[in-house]
């Protein structure tokens, strides 16, 4: 009951925290798409580069987030951004690389060789092949990677409240430090709900972006 009354009493504040949370994850994953997709495409050209890049991305994802924040504080302090939203966004950007790069790489690599040959045979340039054939066919798998990244990093962003990034993690952090189960529960439940809502919205988006002819085949 107390939890409910806290919820109704602070509804606007919770909404604004959720909004900040969403915004931070969106910006970070958005940037991760801008870097990860081109990297994923580029490494299809070289098996050795692919092995190296995927290995590094796998190592990054094993670093605990709290440790990563700790590592970034001295580095980013040099530009006066040791704490706050900047390290949080950078961390999420780094964590998002593996699912996005790996899915892009796999999807482009798995384009039917016959289609690739047909695309070359009709006289498409490498860029035209990417734009007209390979990327459209890879969209569903790339989007699946983006969904993984978003859901995972909504959790990571909650922890970033400890370095002052803001977002729903603030409630959890306060709940712990003030031994206030109301804030703790509301923070945890909101983060979970946000992850579920984000996953479903991105699934909807994925279906919208998937070329129609591919949907018909499934």
């Amino acid at each position: 009951m107390e939890t409910l009354s806290f919820l109704t009493g602070n509804f606007n504040q919770i909404l604004s925290l959720a909004w900040v949370h969403t915004l931070l994850v969106s910006v970070a994953v958005g940037l991760a798409i801008l870097t990860g997709v081109p990297i994923g495409i580029a490494i299809t050209q070289s098996q050795r580069a692919a092995d190296a890049v995927l290995y590094i991305a796998s190592v990054i994802i094993t670093i605990p987030s709290i440790a990563l924040f700790g590592l970034m504080i001295p580095v980013l302090s040099m530009i006066g951004q040791g704490i706050g939203y900047m390290p949080a966004i950078i961390a999420v950007l780094l964590y998002s690389q593996l699912p996005i790069i790996r899915n892009t790489y796999t999807a482009i690599n798995n384009v039917d060789p016959a289609l690739r040959e047909a695309a070359r045979g009709v006289g498409m340039t490498a860029m035209q092949r990417l734009k007209m054939v390979e990327i459209p066919l890879a969209i569903p798998v790339i989007m699946a990677g983006v969904r993984t990244a978003v859901v995972m990093n909504i959790g990571v962003m909650a922890i970033a409240a400890y370095i002052g990034a803001g977002g729903l993690g603030t409630l959890i952090q306060r709940g712990i430090s003030q031994s206030d189960p109301r804030q703790l529960i509301i923070g945890a439940v909101s983060v979970s709900l946000l992850a579920i809502v984000a996953d479903f919205s991105l699934l909807w988006l994925q279906k919208r972006l998937t070329p129609k002819g591919l949907a018909a085949a499934v």
């Binding site: 289609l115 040959e117 047909a118 009709v122 498409m124 340039t125 591919l214």
Partner: peptide, 21 residues
């Protein structure tokens, strides 16, 4: 690229682009 655009090419696997009408 010019050469290929001026040669019709048909392959066994057909290779129609599934994302295009």
């Amino acid at each position: 690229v010019d050469l290929r655009r001026n040669i019709g090419y048909v392959i066994q696997q057909i290779g129609l682009f599934p994302n295009m009408t």
